[in-house]
Design a protein around this nucleic acid. Structure first.
Lengths: 341, 341
DNA sequence: TTGTAAGCGTTATCAG
DNA sequence: CTGATAACGCTTACAA
């Protein structure tokens, strides 16, 4: 182990071992046609010199990088990090390395990222970003890079997609609420930049309520536990707000409402009911436990990576996968549903 | 796998624009010495052809990748994802892209990752991994790659490090506990593979207790909320265990103990007190709120990335940074300390 | 200002 | 089984 060496090249190894480049290359690529003797000779000098092949040069020559680009929003939500850990797990298993292209909530920047993705020469891409329009992603696809898209639709030869559906469960919950005598109008807690998924839920929420001819409310809230908590302390201080059913985007926001309610002396779920749309493990850690819709994002991540490797090997059969949100009954809402998910 | 087979090259652009390679290269590198006229001509054909420079080839030619390798454990703890998001934020600001090398709890694999890191030709590395020994990291350093190491010590020219210290605060807490009349022995909740940091804390815990001549306990627990919760339901069912002060590795484990205690009818903090060593935002979301030691991992991530860029520019002045854990009083322990942190 | 040509560190196709 | 040698796509002196 010598220190501060400049990079040892295959050429130096060849020279030191008294063979040609080609032979060294064959050894590092474990090709059959090398004598045991030369192979050992080369292997020894490789170790002696501390030679590591340049992935760059290899990639340039072979047109394969063993790199997967992952495009996800930078915000560090638990469900995003679950997704990432799922992708990571399978990527490691398949011997791929991940390159992270994190986007903030800004389409300009997201587009610049697209450029980078293409320049970076990844073997495949997994995209989960709300700011990108289908056509932006299409851009990547048009460069012939296999892509798996989450919660978005892209057409193309090299594309797979994974969809989430909350609509059915959500509609069901709303119906049950009124059927079982729910009285105060339901409230949907919308957050700025909550993304496509949240928007879809909101749409379903509004539509279902309208179909039932019910009053409903949509409140815009900050995507911050503390600020939302404070807003709702204020809110619950008004006697006319002492009852309600709140559908919140994320666990942390659901907790904000729930804590604000109980800290205001209201009872959960007798007075105030709370539902978290994207549940994580914190839903069953907090007290009262949260009723949530749950999709295992770790599984989603694994699935995405599996689909991508299949896509890269040109044998992805089913180009579309589907994850249904599971209803998980917690203590934050009254029990209304029979076991049926 | 011929995905990018039809990649547009600089040569094709040159030909289409009627100039030489060199000129196109100058245009994409925004070099001054190009006529406005030719520049526009080239830029137009670049757009027309949808040309994106190959980062691979550029990197090979310039010996710079604008890639930063990040080596972190795969487990998706909140504090790790906070760290990552800090790194990400600064990386994006500095126009670097991250390549993730995630390690599981296994040194063999971690070593294989080291190989990959070197092959991947990153411009710099940020390492936070408990399985890697200093000498393993030294290996990377010996390849002349700038490194910032978290919670580890590596010597070298191109190395910066960031340290966390919990010892002082922890010792202080223990002393205060007994000074203010704490009676039941303290318990340290150890988890398998908790890493160096946890081990250091345990050592301090044991040492401080021994110095004070106090009885203490160390319990090994599973790194899972549910299992730990169940274990402690069992534990708290014994009347002799109805009092205690528990120091837990993470928020989720602290919650497991806390929930088990309150679900067993014990009062917090009157009967059972709980302290979480590595606090996240969930510490103040749960009820009772958790007393924690807090280090803002997002800040740590940003700092690491700043140090790394300085290192890469050869102007890192202070090669060591230090983060002290802040004591955050929650409802899960009795208030003993004066304002002093 | 622009073009020519020599690398950068590999792989891969030939001959030998 | 092994060795030249031409790609791979780009940057960068050096010339023109």
């Amino acid at each position: 182990m010598q220190n501060t060496k400049d990079r040892v090249t295959i050429y130096q190894v060849a020279k030191a071992a008294g063979v040609s480049l080609a032979t060294v290359s064959r050894v590092i690529n474990k090709q059959a046609s090398v004598t045991q003797a030369t192979r050992e000779k080369v292997e020894n000098t490789i170790i002696a010199l501390g030679y590591k092949p340049s992935g760059l040069a290899q990639a340039l020559a072979t047109n394969r990088t063993t790199n997967i680009g992952v495009i996800i929003p930078s915000a560090n939500y638990v469900y995003i990090s679950n997704l990432l850990s799922g992708i990571t797990e399978t990527a490691r298993e398949k011997n791929y390395v991940l390159t992270l292209f994190s986007t903030s909530h800004n389409r300009e920047e997201a587009l610049a990222m697209m450029e980078k993705v293409i320049s970076t020469h990844v073997d495949g891409v997994i995209v989960y970003d709300d700011q990108l329009l289908p056509e932006d992603i299409q851009t990547i696809a048009s460069y012939n890079v296999p892509i798996v898209v989450l919660d978005n639709k892209v057409v193309g030869d090299n594309v797979g997609d994974i969809h989430f559906s909350y609509s059915a469960s959500l509609r069901c919950i709303i119906n049950e609420y009124y059927e079982k005598g729910g009285e105060s109008p339901m409230t949907f807690l919308h957050v700025h930049n909550g993304g496509r998924l949240l928007n879809r839920c909101e749409k379903v929420f509004i539509q279902t309520n309208q179909e039932l001819g019910k009053e409903y409310r949509v409140i815009n809230s900050d995507d911050s536990y503390t600020r939302t908590y404070n807003e709702f302390r204020e809110y619950f201080s008004q006697p006319e707000n002492h009852k309600g059913f709140f559908i919140c985007a994320r666990d942390s926001l659901a907790c904000a409402v729930q804590n604000a309610a109980s800290d205001s002396g209201l009872r959960i779920p007798e007075d105030v009911e709370i539902l978290s749309l994207v549940g994580t493990k914190y839903a069953y850690i907090v007290r009262p436990t949260l009723t949530t819709f749950h999709i295992d994002m770790h599984e989603v991540g694994k699935r995405a990576m599996y689909m991508l490797t299949d896509l890269m090997n040109h044998d992805l059969i089913d180009r579309s996968a589907h994850f249904d949100a599971t209803y998980v009954q917690g203590q934050s809402t009254k029990k209304r549903l029979k076991e049926e998910n």
